Simulated assay, not measured.
Amino acid sequence: MKNTTTISIDLAKTVFQVALFNKYGVLKSNNKMSQSKMVQFIAQHPEALICMEACGTAHFWGRRFQKSGHRVLLVPAHIAAKYRTGNKNDANDALAIYEAIKRPKTYFVQVKNLDQQDLASLLKLRQGYIKQRTQTVNRIRGLGLEYGIKIPKSIAKVRKNLPYFLEDAENELTTSSRFILRDLLDQLLLLDTQVDNATNALLTRAKEIPVCSRLTALPGVAWIIASALYARLGDGSAYKCGRDASASVGLVPANSGTGGNNKLLGITKRGDRSLRSLLVHGARSIVSRIKDKQDGLSCWIRDQLSKNHLNKTTVALANKLVRMAWAILKSGEDYRAPLAQ
């Protein structure tokens, strides 16, 4: 592929800002277009380099343009914003995206394929239901306290104890408060069903993807974590090394320095918060069950525990899991357990 034209697009729902640059980087046009006109315009420039901000609909358009033979680069929104000059408007945003791709250290977001998009959407659906369920439980406990009803923490205890309080005629619950709590309980039970349905749909879809099956061979990684890793990392080609993959999930130390003095801080906590949480929980389950195992990974964990706190060791293992997952995705090979040193 020989790219002679670069097209920078500021995406939107109906009106798109499209900037055209020739092979020398000279701006030839920067106009607003409808979706149909944008598609016609891009068709007039075959094998172009198309750059867009990694935002809503970016992966859809990325897949579509790649099928037409174009090369696609998705720029993270926070990076594109650094190169904007003047006021924020569509025309300046399109120019900023082009400026960002010219910088040698700019990293790009890989265009998700349909398998990744399905997994990412199902994960978001499941996370949304879980968040709503937590909010509903908090509303139940908070409202109950206003009437002297103290429901113990945890979803299971709310599900178990609330019906008894509703049937108790001697407490201070009024007709209105009973109606509200009963309605919230119905919402909680519905959300339980929705979480289960979303989880089953996610597991079914993940089991249809061979690479997810390979990822489940990693210690502490089951289908949900495997699907989240594949949805995030893809085939691993967007990262130069395993550390870059770990950095994208926020599991590497931050650092601060001046005058040649650099200091390592806690982990950056950047990127996908949900995936990071899943990985840490998976790593914690491994750390808590090593006992007297003599495989290489268990020996490494025991060595870390002898020098570091349990939580620090857990995060270090989560970091290692991302690196091993990246190696599997990048090489296409199966997981090989490390030997004892």
Results as ranks from 00 to 15, higher is better:
169 A>K: 13
297 L>G: 09
35 Q>Y: 14
222 A>L: 01
66 Q>R: 07
298 S>Y: 07
41 F>H: 15
99 E>V: 05
20 L>D: 06
137 V>Q: 10
124 K>D: 09
218 L>G: 05
97 I>M: 02
323 R>E: 03
296 G>S: 04
110 Q>D: 11
83 Y>G: 03
103 R>C: 02
203 L>D: 07
206 A>H: 08
240 K>W: 01
118 D>H: 10
309 H>T: 15
282 G>C: 08
71 R>P: 00
24 Y>V: 10
254 A>W: 02
260 G>P: 12
312 K>M: 02
188 L>W: 06
261 N>K: 14
155 I>F: 03
279 L>W: 11
331 S>R: 13
243 R>Y: 00
135 Q>A: 15
257 G>A: 06
218 L>T: 12
249 V>C: 04
31 N>V: 14
203 L>H: 15
122 L>S: 06
1 M>D: 04
113 N>L: 03
213 S>Y: 10
133 R>V: 08
166 L>M: 13
318 A>W: 05
204 T>A: 12
253 P>L: 06
61 W>G: 09
239 Y>C: 03
237 S>C: 03
69 G>W: 08
286 I>K: 12
261 N>R: 13
206 A>C: 09
144 G>H: 07
78 H>T: 07
39 V>Q: 11
222 A>S: 13
21 F>R: 00
190 L>A: 13
167 E>R: 10
24 Y>W: 05
146 E>R: 07
98 Y>S: 01
31 N>T: 15
248 S>K: 07
205 R>W: 02
26 V>C: 00
193 T>N: 10
204 T>N: 12
86 G>E: 03
229 L>E: 09
182 R>M: 03
190 L>G: 03
215 L>E: 10
17 Q>S: 06
325 A>S: 15
238 A>N: 13
206 A>K: 04
23 K>L: 00
54 A>M: 07
291 K>L: 00
340 A>L: 01
324 M>V: 15
186 D>C: 14
26 V>P: 00
16 F>H: 04
120 A>Q: 09
274 S>Y: 15
327 A>E: 13
266 G>E: 07
202 L>R: 10
256 S>Y: 10
33 M>V: 12
303 D>E: 14
49 L>H: 11
314 T>C: 09
143 L>R: 06
83 Y>A: 05
131 K>N: 02
181 L>C: 08
